[in-house]
Design a protein around this nucleic acid. Structure first.
Lengths: 220, 220, 220, 220
DNA sequence: TATGAATGAGATTTCATTCAT
DNA sequence: TATGAATGAAATCTCATTCAT
């Protein structure tokens, strides 16, 4: 969606624009982000942005796609496909949390696309984003069912849906103002979330997932 | 947060304004909703809204609070406190789904408050909203642990958090453009979501929750 | 300019409205004074004001006229017509200063009528106000010229004009934000204006006037 | 107080905006001047004004300051510092009258700043404006006292204050609706003020000032 | 290719005045 | 006579986008 010129400029410039755009869009939302302010923060002129992108929305769309691509790489790029589902899920939660704490802007963008008035973006982005993850989880479930380490009476689609739901709410709780408050209310946390707490929540969550999926859960 | 005047006008007028405001805010979001348009849809003048509320934001805040109150009543007002946790959770999912399908606007508002640039609202709303549900679920878990129908090795807070997480993603999937697409992708649904499918997903979910919580789940 | 009803209401109510109106108009100016706020400060309803006056402007005009009448009474009502011009001028300065320090609102209204966009008021008020004072000063000058205590080579009109000019700038300096700053700059005053300083300025001014007018000024 | 952009545009455009702004502000006052109307009269778009100034008030403040600067140049720029105080005062009155008759808008702005609700402007403008004139008059008085052409028993500050007071009332009488009426009432003028009359009033005034200040005025 | 001045539609909010009760 | 809810015109300011340089 960017114009050709965007890929001809110096990489640092390109990266700076993308990063600042992601940050501003995440901080203020699409409508409240003004192109003049963005240009200034990116150290270029308003006019230049329009030589790279057709419109603010076009830039927004690209920034979202780019962010989703980055987060996918951060999580799936470091994962060994040979691991069993439990280890992979654990990895997803851990790497996801790490990525989100480093680059909250991308997750915020993802959440915003689920907001009112954003239908035109979700139509373009949502399916391609979710398909990758959905597909991956489903394959994994089937593979490990066959391997006998996942109960074979589970509804694969539904299970994948639930695992990913827990994942989304969990990482969202690390950054969205509302969901952060919500998590604190549930988990009765007063002070800031430190690494230990995050690890604890992840461990508890993956344990529960293990418990749901494993054929011979019994005691634990 | 409304001015006194608001409670002195005819109830139908008050209700019409609240309903139309909820719908417009849900449809377009806070920023894209214009007061002139809202006034017209509510059948009153722009000026009148300002005799009821100090500002657009003040109206937005009240509409959100009011919507959360309505949804709470719809769900918890029809629930027998004597029911065991499984039946109550099932009731929450079913009544929640029903409410959301009838009044999607209120859930959309809830999601929007989690968006970028909405921190000033989440600060005012989130805790009070989440506290009620969190508290309810935790009490229930403790009561039924004591009653021996919930495993007593569970982390109460964490478990409540996960149940509610599944609930939120589920009802959000019924209405948010993005999450609807996501659910279809996971559950491989092509056509519109009908009542049967919704019931099916609820059944599957509550079964899984039962499985997670019940002491003697063992094999199945 | 008020309607008949205005003179049928209780005097305290009438006075309260006039006083609060004078204060608000003086404090904020005509345009920035809002009828709702005024009604509240006067302890009556907006609607009531419109049963007494046709419009905001009509009220403004009456308040100005009323204030000018009050200031005239305060100054000229306590003056013995038999006094010579020097004593009368001294009296005017002293009583003027006293009145203005007690009721700055009325002088502020007078100054505001000289502002941009106030032509429609000055047309109705200015002549009648200035005529009284001008006439009085001119008569006095002529009388005391005949009595031999004012130089008879003076231009009566011009002299009256100058005496009144000095008076206006002086009392305005006691209350207008700008003219107060101006007086401090000229007289090099750092701290607040106390009664002694005011008296000193008056003495200096009337002495100079005496010097200008008296036939045998010479040394003093 | 303008933004940098304002000084980068063509001078004719800049001057046109300043002139029209001064005229509109003088004609209608700050509040009644609308930015759309001003933009139209200045031949530019509303938006452009906001690329030059942060706000209407910021523009107003600059227009006032600019006007005061222009009037200072018109009066003091053409004055020989070697002249004695009487000639300088005469020059000030004559050049002041000329400037004011050519550019009444600037004096009207000056008067308006002394109005109710304009405190925030007088705080910023008044001292710097009055200081220059006050300082000049005081120096002159001291110099010519030493030279023996001004009585040395005069209170310098007070005398400067009175000379400037007469000056302000005089030029204000040439343009403010109210003060024009007042001057006519005092000087009994029916028809329009022509150049001869203005000259006459100036001559009379400066004569009287000479009379007040000169050591050996005695009889006349 | 880069710039930033110019545009003008559009949004929120205010407030004098009316009028049914 | 008193009230205060209702009105809607009007005003300031924002900002995505264009285009001459």
């Amino acid at each position: 969606m960017p114009k050709d010129t965007f890929f001809k400029i110096a990489e640092v410039k390109r990266e700076r624009l993308l990063r600042q755009a992601a940050r501003m869009f995440a901080e203020k939302g699409l409508n409240q982000t003004d192109m003049a302010g963005l240009a200034e923060r990116a150290g270029i002129s308003k006019g230049s942005i329009y030589t790279y992108f057709d419109s603010k929305e076009s830039l927004y769309l690209y920034v979202c796609r780019d962010g989703l691509e980055r987060s996918r790489k951060a999580i799936y790029g470091t994962m060994d496909p040979a691991w069993d589902i439990y280890r992979q899920v654990d990895h997803i939660f851990r790497q996801g949390a790490r990525f989100v704490l480093d680059h909250s802007e991308y997750l915020i963008l993802y959440i915003n696309v689920a907001s009112a008035g954003m239908e035109r973006f979700s139509e373009q982005i949502s399916r391609e984003v979710e398909h990758y993850t959905a597909d991956h989880l489903k394959r994994l479930l089937r593979r490990d069912m066959a391997a006998g380490i996942v109960r074979n009476d589970l509804d694969v689609n539904m299970t994948a849906f639930m695992i990913n739901s827990l994942y989304i709410v969990f990482i969202t709780s690390l950054i969205s103002s509302h969901f952060k408050i919500r998590m604190r209310e549930y988990l009765e946390i007063e002070d800031d979330f430190d690494q230990d707490r995050v690890d604890g929540v992840i461990a508890r969550t993956t344990t529960m997932i293990h418990h749901m999926l494993h054929p011979a859960v019994a005691a634990s």
